[in-house]
Simulated scan of single mutants.
Amino acid sequence: MSNYNVFELVTHLRKCPDIFLKPTSLMEKGGLNAIALVCDTYRIVCNDFLKKEFKIPSEYNLAYIEDNHWRTIAISTWLLSHPNFINCPFLEDKLYTFWFEALAEAALYVKFENWISDEERAEEMVRLLLYTCKILPEGESDEEAIDKLASLSSADRQKVLRESYEANERIMRIKREMAEKKAREAANTYGRE
């Protein structure tokens, strides 16, 4: 098995050609054929160029995938063109989860161009792929790999921000209620005098 060096994979990802950033043919006439790209990536990763059946969402579900998610998938196919992922049939069953579950969640918070332009987002995609495929990055223990992914995770960061916002809103609501109660008590005291 190859050594999965995170720095090397991030460097490869950040060299993604502009063609992978185009809108998909599902969104724009003449756009990138994302389904063909996904199927070709399956063939390359599995080293089975005669295969015709692939695990992809149904036609109905494909229509609901947003353009940012499709472009994120296209960028990830470039990442999967790295020599470490070629001829790795054990990855086939994990790619669906990576593309249509893990990246679906991440794409809610990351604009597709940031996967290439932002070093941390590029590392997040690399680590998300390795984690989903149950591949340990070179020189890292299981715990280190999980911690590093968690520290980069856009979804986790959004969750923390949302929880922080909700906690702040609760504090502000309690302060308002306390101020209103104090004002009512003051008004009642003034009214009795």
Rank of each mutant, 00 (worst) to 15 (best):
I171L: 09
L161G: 04
A145K: 01
A150T: 10
E143F: 10
I171Y: 07
K148W: 06
A150W: 07
S153P: 01
D142Q: 13
I146A: 08
N168T: 06
R170F: 04
K159M: 13
V160L: 12
E166D: 14
E169W: 05
S153T: 00
D156H: 14
E163F: 05
K148V: 08
L152I: 03
E166S: 05
D147F: 12
A145W: 00
A167Y: 04
S164I: 03
Q158C: 10
N168D: 15
N168H: 08
K159N: 10
S154F: 02
N168S: 13
I171G: 00
D142I: 07
E166R: 04
Y165F: 08
L161C: 07
N168L: 11
I146V: 14
A150H: 07
S154V: 01
V160I: 14
S154D: 01
R157S: 10
S153F: 03
A150Q: 12
E144P: 00
I171D: 07
D156F: 14
R162D: 14
E169A: 13
L152D: 03
S151H: 06
N168F: 04
D156S: 15
E169T: 06
L149F: 09
S151G: 07
Q158S: 15
R170Y: 06
E166L: 11
D147G: 05
I171C: 04
E166I: 06
D142H: 12
E163Q: 12
K159D: 15
V160G: 04
Y165E: 14
I171P: 00
E144C: 04
D147N: 14
A150L: 14
D156T: 14
Q158F: 13
D156I: 12
Q158D: 14
R170E: 14
L161T: 06
S153R: 01
R170V: 04
K148H: 09
E166A: 13
D142E: 15
I171R: 10
R157K: 15
A150I: 03
E169R: 09
I146E: 15
E166Y: 10
S151C: 05
S164Y: 08
A145S: 11
S154C: 06
A145H: 03
D156A: 11
A150C: 12
R157D: 06
V160A: 12
R162A: 10
L152V: 02
A150F: 11
D147S: 13
D147M: 13
Q158W: 04
R162Q: 10
A155D: 08
S151Y: 10
S164L: 09
R162G: 06
R170W: 05
E166K: 04
E143P: 00
R162T: 12
S164P: 00
